[in-house]
Design a protein around this nucleic acid. Structure first.
Lengths: 143, 143
DNA sequence: AGATTAAAAGACATTTTTATCCTTTTTATG
DNA sequence: CATAAAAAGGATAAAAATGTCTTTTAATCT
């Protein structure tokens, strides 16, 4: 449902949300241990998000990744779609093409409504929502 | 959350539930097209389930796969556990080790309760439950 | 018993996902 | 302008998931 890559990406973005802003950019080198994601791989994912304007980055000295105020308005779903692609998230729990509530497969009837809820959470939760009121970084990234 | 393999397996078992019994065994050859799963792959999955006594099979002429009355009492979760292993289903949505309701990660707080419901469905739904009152095979396996 | 049928088992192939490494490009700053 | 810092990009590797094929074993029927 969510690939590892997406989870990694969300963790990375979360870290950025808690620790960065336009005046304080962050190196992958300084994130990856805390969020428990391989350095080079996390770099790739953040680059991808940056390319799709989900997060921000600048090159060169004093550069790094960061979240602008605007970036914080992006939803989890936007992250997931960039990393996993549209198809994966919206796919039927049973992997059945064209399966939806109008033409539900067996499991859909059972599970469908829960899954939709999951998707709604992804769609309706912004980065900002996730971190509001939180400061303790550690609590966010248990092993 | 659910691997393709698990979905395939569930479809196969569902077909067996609808069409087989101890006196009427079924060949993979006669299932795979209907459930849209590669023949050899489905065979593998059913073998695995049979080995774990989730479904039944006999070799040789008049042989094939089938569900005994007992087999029908198995839950979806049992199927999933055989195919995907314990870890995969119960793993945190965020892939965080040791994450649970006592020590929840960020997403867990948002998604956790939905996910638990999903798992409860798998645990509480037997094959029999799934097919009760159904006869029309086609409706079960849209493309 | 022998032939045939069908699942079981295992070896092999492909694809996708995950991960690493190395080079190139960009940019800030002395 | 030179240099160093950092992301971007490309190529490759490793691992896992998915899928195919061949051989072995067991059951049934003549």
């Amino acid at each position: 449902m969510l690939s590892n890559s997406s989870k990694y990406a969300i963790k990375g973005v979360l870290y950025l949300a808690l620790n960065s802003n336009a005046d304080h950019k962050i190196l992958v080198r300084d994130i990856y241990e805390t969020v428990h994601v391989p350095e080079a791989y996390l770099a790739k994912l953040l680059q991808e998000l940056s390319r799709h304007d989900i997060i921000s980055s600048t090159r060169g000295p004093k550069g790094g990744f960061y979240l602008s105020e605007n970036d914080r308005q992006h939803t989890l779903m936007e992250i997931v779609k960039v990393i996993d692609g549209e198809k994966r998230v919206n796919s039927c729990v049973m992997g059945i093409r064209n399966c939806n509530m109008d033409n539900p497969c067996v499991l859909h009837k059972l599970i469908g409504s829960n899954k939709s809820k999951f998707i709604k959470v992804l769609e309706n939760t912004t980065i900002l929502d996730l971190i509001e009121g939180k400061e303790d970084v550690e609590e966010f990234f248990p092993f």
